[in-house]
């Protein structure tokens, strides 16, 4: 290997690593606030990428029907409950966000020539379809059993992952898709050719991380989520609704997932089931951070990206084996540094 190949691999590794870092941050956040291990993060990545691809091919993305169905269920549960309690305004709010909004999206998608829209509008529409599924999913699947043990929540996540992969196959078919790059720009930096998409990924990742940091440090809702992560009961006693915290967290996680998908789609061909492996690499990074530390998780993600890039050069057949076996020394190290017998939640 010479210097130029090392640089190219390094660039690949850091680009993918930035995506894994975003996913790892979302995973740590979801686990800290809701104790849910968000296995289906990867499906949000795939749904984001493939919804965009479907739009560009001129079809109405099938994911919007899933949004309508989920929204309908939420309206049926929460709207009727509010109606029975005589809270008309609340019922209206529920129906507005969960029923009227998805239907309005359907109308917009069928009225506009979506494949001729500028890329940025397509991306916005993609996020508008995929991201609200996050909070709806929390409401339907997790909220009824929010106090269940971590293990039960994990099994629910795995079940949803399985269902979402199946739906992905139904929506997008078995073929992979790659979307056009955000910018065709490329320039030479010494011996290295830097592409526009790499710059996009890195800039968006850094901006998003800074924005998240500001959100958690400066805003009331961000602080509410941090409080919930530190002490669930205490936060609840201070008036922070666990259901709201859960939905907000899932909103953020779905946003990060879908955006990562949109960012990575021009770099890698995405199939309906690609998300799982991408999400799991985020997990390896999150586990490096012990599912608790954001900075270590982000650094771990870069390490995973680099390891993957170099492994694909030296032993491409064993690329996945090498990346997932990385988890073993990490677990070993964590295991050696913990001596405590504790009750599982």
């Amino acid at each position: 290997m010479d210097m130029s190949i090392a640089l190219i691999l390094g660039q690949d590794g850091i680009t993918n690593g930035a995506i894994y870092a975003l996913l790892a941050l979302a995973l740590v956040l979801v686990f800290a606030v809701t104790r849910v291990i968000f296995i289906q993060q990867g499906e949000f990545v795939a749904y984001g990428a493939l919804t965009l691809a479907m739009m560009q091919s001129g079809a109405t993305p099938a994911t919007v029907w899933l949004l309508v169905a989920m929204g309908g269920l939420v309206t049926a549960f929460d709207g009727l409950k509010a109606l029975k309690a005589g809270q008309m305004q609340r019922a209206g709010m529920v129906a507005g966000w969960n029923l009227a909004y998805p239907l309005a999206l359907v109308a917009v998608l069928s009225a506009l020539p979506v494949n001729e829209l500028p890329l940025v509008l397509q991306v916005v529409l993609t996020l508008a379809i995929v991201v609200p599924m996050g909070p709806m999913m929390y409401r339907l699947m997790y909220q009824p059993i929010a106090s269940a043990p971590v293990l039960i929540l994990l099994i629910v996540s795995v079940a949803l992952h399985i269902a979402m992969v199946g739906l992905g196959l139904l929506f997008f078919g078995a073929e992979g898709h790659r979307t056009p790059a955000f910018s065709e720009l490329s320039f030479d930096l010494g011996p290295l050719m830097v592409t526009g998409q790499t710059i996009w990924v890195l800039v968006v990742s850094v901006l998003l991380i800074v924005a998240l940091y500001q959100f958690f440090e400066r805003t009331l809702y961000g602080k509410a989520l941090r409080a919930t992560a530190i002490n669930r009961v205490g936060a609840q006693l201070m008036g922070i609704s666990p259901a709201l915290a859960g939905k907000l967290t899932f909103f953020l996680a779905a946003f990060i997932g879908a955006l990562s998908g949109v960012l990575i789609a021009p770099i890698t061909t995405i199939y309906y089931d690609t998300g799982f492996l991408i999400g799991l690499k985020g997990f390896v990074a999150a586990i490096i951070g012990g599912l608790a530390s954001y900075p270590i998780a982000a650094l771990g993600a870069i390490a995973v990206g680099l390891l993957e890039a170099f492994a694909s050069f030296w032993a491409s057949a064993y690329k996945e084996v090498i990346v997932f076996t990385l988890i073993i020394p990490v677990l070993l190290w964590r295991s050696l540094t913990s001596h405590h017998v504790e009750e599982e939640e």
Binding site: A159, L160, A163, G166
Partner: peptide
């Protein structure tokens, strides 16, 4: 899909 939903 059915298994996933059934499980939940």
């Amino acid at each position: 899909i059915v298994f996933g939903i059934l499980m939940v």
